[in-house]
Design a binder for these strands. Structure first.
Lengths: 219, 219
DNA sequence: GCCATACCGATAAAAATTTATCCATTTGTT
DNA sequence: AACAAATGGATAAATTTTTATCGGTATGGC
């Protein structure tokens, strides 16, 4: 039997998070006129372990790389797009049109990554009916009917931490399956609901603690 | 020999990234008048494995938790603050005063986490001399002298991806030791320089791929 | 004062992730 | 045509992170 490729192999989350970087790097090479790319070359450019990149790529590529040449860029980019879902469009709603919410709502790059944020919700009546970029802002009361009518599956939470759980509950209630949480709090969700937390304090903690340790060691 | 506590044990990065969540949760309990908290209780509230929380906490607490009661909240919060560096203030500079940069520059919460962003740099002359919040915006040319004069060690990069590496090189050149990178690109840095990447496309990839898989399995 | 309980600490086991090695294959060169 | 070099694939080892288990101890009820 031929080796299986691209057939629902289990790809670890850590791999998944590296794929967008590979994609954008290889995309750049394509634009520079390159035709082939090797895992080793990607690894070197991105400062990663070659074996790691090789393994990651072999998990998503539909064809084997050719020894001595590497992967055909066009094919590989296509496979990456497929795998990352850049080719199809997921719709999403966003709740909490503060400064962060506004930033996300107006960011055009998400659409090239297969995410189309269709509408924002906020409890502030002053915002209702306004447009941010080209997205309308609706009152919270409309969320339920909106989700149920459109069948949207992804919700983005950009409200303050103390309101996040309530928003989350409401989303789940209405049928949202995946939540991208920018509030600094862990959400309680029923089994089967996906949550991805975006967590600046955590990142900062890691960085500043490592720095402190480093300064301590060096002295 | 007595068991060592809080003595430069190796705390994994994953633990480090959970500590701020523990901190904010336990802080809330303190404000509600609680005196003691158990690892098990934290675990339940945050939906984490009890053993994991117990291990994390025992790594940072200066005292042993008491059976049946748990940890004294005041002491534990203090230890967490110490460990996370919330008690001392790190200064930082930010480069790239676009919408994201502005958001970070004006966010007041960082100061309670021990990060004081003192100034922003941008290449746009229209911004020079302006204030965002209470932070001045200076031209890029001033960066070198600023870093060298103040000895600031942390740099935040919020420029577009194609300019990030150049900014990074410049920072490192001037003596920055830790970089918080919000640009969607991996940075090449010399050995010993710390980099923490904040990477929305990666997060999105993880979330949307998991969702796709889920929808696929359910049907 | 005694006992059951809840909780911690430590050690061990398991799972996930990264890194190392070996081998086969294709390509470019001579 | 033969050979050297570069590359991916597969398997195995090492590392990191999470989860499970066991024994001990302080606490509160009786």
């Amino acid at each position: 039997m031929a080796t299986q490729h691209n057939t629902s192999l289990v790809v670890p989350k850590s791999t998944l998070s590296r794929l967008p970087l590979y994609y954008s790097h290889i995309r750049k090479m394509q634009q520079q006129g390159e035709k082939y790319v090797s895992a080793a070359a990607v690894a070197q450019s991105l400062n990663l372990n070659p074996v790691l990149v090789r393994k990651d790529l072999s998990g998503v590529s539909s064809v084997e790389g050719k020894p001595r040449a590497g992967f055909e860029i066009d094919t590989l980019l296509n496979d990456l797009s497929d795998f990352l879902g850049y080719n199809k469009v997921d719709e999403a709603i966003l709740v909490g049109v503060g400064s962060l919410g506004r930033l996300i709502l107006t960011n055009k790059e998400f659409s090239s990554m297969g995410l189309n944020i269709t509408v924002g919700f906020d409890k502030d009546p002053d915002l209702h009916g306004l447009q941010v970029g080209d997205k309308f802002i609706l009152p919270m009361e409309k969320m339920e009917s909106y989700i149920k009518r459109t069948g949207v599956k992804i919700g983005i939470i950009t409200v303050p931490a103390d309101q996040a759980q309530a928003v989350c509950d409401q989303m789940v209630e209405c049928g949202i399956l995946a939540i991208w949480n920018f509030a600094f709090t862990l959400l309680n969700v029923p089994q089967g609901i996906l949550v991805k937390n975006e967590n600046l304090p955590s990142s900062l903690a890691v960085l500043s603690h490592q720095l402190a340790k480093k300064l301590n060691n060096d002295k």
